[in-house]
Design a protein around this nucleic acid. Sequence first.
DNA 1: TTAATGACGTAAT
DNA 2: GATTACGCCATTA
Length: 118
Amino acid sequence: MTLSEQDLPGFKARVLALVAQIPPGRVMTYGQLALLAGQPGAARQVGYVMNGLLESHDLPWQRVINAQGKVSTDKLGFGDIQRGLLVAEGVVFDTAGKCDLGQFQWWPQDAPGQERLL
DNA sequence: TTAATGACGTAAT
DNA sequence: GATTACGCCATTA
């Protein structure tokens, strides 16, 4: 076996692990996930991985949005569904379909005291 | 092996 | 604020 399937933890697995940890009412961006997965700038790959989650029914894929604070699933046809799920969790979207990342973006190990607005 | 693709990001225009 | 152009890199054909 080569080293690519043994040593590498797997970009996918790391992204999935991060997504699974997003608490309700909070969101993460693709670039952020890429950064935390160890590949800054690899936001596209995060999206590619997410596409594989569609068949996965246990991960909160809905809590992953783009850096503009908007859902990127609009082109896929279920953007309304994702927004609806997030709204149901307490995320507020404005008329442009954007949410306040400064308020809802979640980071692992997030410091207590910065999430009190909710 | 190379080429093309993609739920993105950032900077420039 | 909207659009264009380029980069980023894992995955697939």
